[in-house]
Design a protein around this nucleic acid. Sequence first.
DNA 1: TGCCAGCGAATCGTATATGATAGTGGCTGT
DNA 2: ACAGCCACTATCATATACGATTCGCTGGCA
Lengths: 241, 241
Amino acid sequence: MSSPDRVLGPVTLPGRSPQLPDRIALVLRDRILSGELRPGTFLRMDRIAAELGVSHTPVREALQSLRAEDMVHAVPRRGFVVAELTRDDVADLFEVQADLTGTLAARAAERLAPGDLDRLRVLADRVTELAGSTREDNDPAELDPLVSAEHRLHAEVNRVAASRKLAWLVGRSAHYLPAHFYTGSPAWRTGALRSHAELLDALGATDPDAARSAMRRHVLDGRDLLLAHLDAIGMWTDPPT
Amino acid sequence: MSSPDRVLGPVTLPGRSPQLPDRIALVLRDRILSGELRPGTFLRMDRIAAELGVSHTPVREALQSLRAEDMVHAVPRRGFVVAELTRDDVADLFEVQADLTGTLAARAAERLAPGDLDRLRVLADRVTELAGSTREDNDPAELDPLVSAEHRLHAEVNRVAASRKLAWLVGRSAHYLPAHFYTGSPAWRTGALRSHAELLDALGATDPDAARSAMRRHVLDGRDLLLAHLDAIGMWTDPPT
DNA sequence: TGCCAGCGAATCGTATATGATAGTGGCTGT
DNA sequence: ACAGCCACTATCATATACGATTCGCTGGCA
């Protein structure tokens, strides 16, 4: 029995909600963005299915999702290959994301209704609180609340902005960030709290321009951190063979 | 035997290349964007599969693709619903697309290598030629060459721009145009030929700013036409019941 | 020695089968 | 008569099965 590749002890899939394909996609995204799966690597459905302890049907769907995100390419009758990803690509994605997110913030400032600001404050406070309980551990299960608090804050801004498709486009490019990367970084935390404060001030003052630039900076700070990280782990160096 | 719904004579799926799910997605996209399938409508996999004469597996994958494009939403154990789409949404998508495409054109101008311009001229001439052979018929099979010529021209610009992810983002929002809409419109044809000429001039002169604005205008012209069309067919009026 | 043909293994793409879950209508008891 | 419960149906989600295609290898021939 040729033991296929590695530890294939059933990898616990994150989350227990439905949508098995989504959870598989999450795993694969992380592996690609962590550099574990290099561009050009073929992703074999059978192996992934065996490793995760599922059938290949949901794996195929997960790969289709990743294809829609341009993280893998489909070669008809051959399977799926991890797509090229250059440093410039990442920079571009964040540039666009900064623009879009900035626009959303500006619109939120224009459309702010009574009560919206209170809701945003509550969410921002929650982020502050979780970020303050400084643990240096990297246990994803522990950091998850911070991730989702940050996510909820941005989601609320988007809701107020009432621009569904822009929010969707942001979401697309946002998949290119490893989920737990930011929250583990102390530098990100302090910067984020400052950006959030600026954003709320701008929204409170109904100042679209200020809201836009606060958001832009927030995203671009994240870009810088991520690029530095990817540089450090040698993401762009072609593996020897 | 309850005859399911309608004419279910096997709808001929466009194209005969592999990737059955893609072809199904194409059909569904057209139906959504043509207003045939209204927001809120539940898409039943079995019906679609039966109508198209395929099993429900590829249908499900097509629906997942549409979900990744935010054209439908997945309701966990309930299926897929056609997503809301407002006039502002469409306008936003084109605004973003204009920016992105403009940036791509500008970069193409900066990176233009010897020979690139010739290739672009050939492709543009091909578009002109096909657009000139004015037929007013709406037979999709006949218009296809013009669609794909236009597509190849833009693809070449993107290739020269060498910005993979930007091109990908453009592609995402571009799925929101009914494929055969433009080429059937005489107004679009004349405008497009003018825009193409301007673009090539700008590229030839290595003038990024001119290239950007030519492209922007090209896209925004398309937006205006599409919005006028969607207004005309009553896309935004909620159906009586 | 190098190249082409044919065979076999591996892998994808689609179809079919099975299990799980939510919605619906009828029945019963009060 | 009405409310609550139960069974039934429709539908999705995942697993399994099957056919089709591609790639790599081996063996023969120039």
